[in-house]
Design a protein around this nucleic acid. Structure first.
Lengths: 214, 214
DNA sequence: TCAAACCGAACGAACGTTCGCACCGACGGC
DNA sequence: GCCGTCGGTGCGAACGTTCGTTCGGTTTGA
């Protein structure tokens, strides 16, 4: 019975995990890499068995179907992103700092666990039924957090909040299509530049009234 | 021998087209819809034959392989986007107006031919060999145009041009994942808001030095 | 009458999934 | 201390289906 595996860290493996959960973690990791490389539909269970050094039948002890495999990968990835973002953005932070923390958390997670996040971003809407509903609920959670943070900012009245949030997600989520670790800036610099665009545009900063100090 | 079909308009069909090109256009249209709905890998030639009202073998008179089919869809879509963008952004336009025209052109094309553009955006990197090279060249063309337009703007010195251009593309290309025609603004308003974010940020506009008039 | 357009049927390969069985460390009764 | 068995883990081989593609031939229209 898979189901469990509630651990939130993606990296190596929790030390107190059962052998079952540890092995499942390895399998999900390999699946995330393959799905990110070739796409869900173009990845076969036999590809996964080759990458895992396991037989096809043996793999089915860890999930019931290929769909559930994708579900487990996506759920694991989403739980990681959401818990990192929640931890980084306590509500008592001032709005602009909260946005910066959110963007930084998102980028750090995405660049540190790229295959997982590629699957999250690219294989949207391929699940169906209860799997789809569960993932959609997590996505909604994450979107709500972002929306809450963005609408707390002083927004231009002409700016539809939904468009603003989705544009921000656009800048953030598009990164998996172009970012090259050796060529492009890391999460910190990337986050600064994207926050700069979102908060004040790409143009050179002109000094503007600072928020009243104390 | 497919190959040709150089026409650039996606909409119904050029009146002077040969029956072959007209039929090929219908097939590509159906393929674009199916690829956008279920993804390239999850769409079968038999799905396409059903949607086209043709036999599987009959379809192969219009393309040599499924890969070529995707290639033709993507090339056709890219040529449309690029020619629209070039026409809309003559180099003599002032930089900011040129950016607005580019964004407007991009959004109008994307919202008017959504399935095609979804395939363009989502099925990146699934082609290989010469097909991949040809599409990559078109993508590079389009990227260069955007880069030229963006770098002509007064950019903040801290802003890496590549990050700026990719962030702009992120906002634009992410739209296919969330835009609902009945709920969200059309191309014009969307373009204004995205330009506003990119040029001055999402914050309320404070009057700043206008460019010297005459 | 000839080429272009089209099709039913089949090809071999690959797919997701399941069946039946082997291995193995743990454990209770004797 | 030894044996029997039992659940968790793993596998080779096969299931039926669907895949992309091709073959040989018929229809169609000028």
């Amino acid at each position: 019975m898979p189901a469990a595996f509630a651990a939130v860290a993606l990296a190596p493996a929790p030390p107190d995990a059962t052998p079952f959960d540890r092995r499942l973690g390895e399998i999900l990791h390999a699946a995330a890499e393959l799905f990110a490389e070739h796409g869900y539909a173009a990845t076969s269970i036999r590809d996964l068995s080759r990458r895992c050094g396991a037989s096809v039948a043996g793999l089915y002890h860890y999930f019931h179907s290929k769909q559930e495999l994708l579900f487990l990968v996506q759920r694991h990835a989403f739980l990681t992103v959401i818990s990192a973002a929640r931890a980084a953005t306590p509500p008592e932070l001032p709005p602009e700092a909260r946005l910066r923390a959110f963007v930084a958390s998102h980028l750090e997670t995405f660049l540190a666990h790229r295959p997982w996040m590629t699957v999250l971003t690219h294989e949207d809407e391929v699940l169906s039924g209860d799997y789809l509903r569960a993932i959609a609920a997590l996505k909604h959670d994450y979107y709500q957090l972002a929306r809450e943070i963005v609408t707390a900012l002083p927004l231009s009245p002409a700016m539809a909040p939904r468009v603003a949030v989705m544009s921000l997600f656009g800048m953030l989520n598009w990164i998996y299509t172009w970012h090259q670790p050796k060529r492009d800036p890391g999460a910190a610099v990337l986050g600064e530049q994207i926050c700069a665009i979102f908060l004040r545009g790409a143009a050179p900063t002109v000094r503007r009234r600072r928020p009243a100090r104390s």
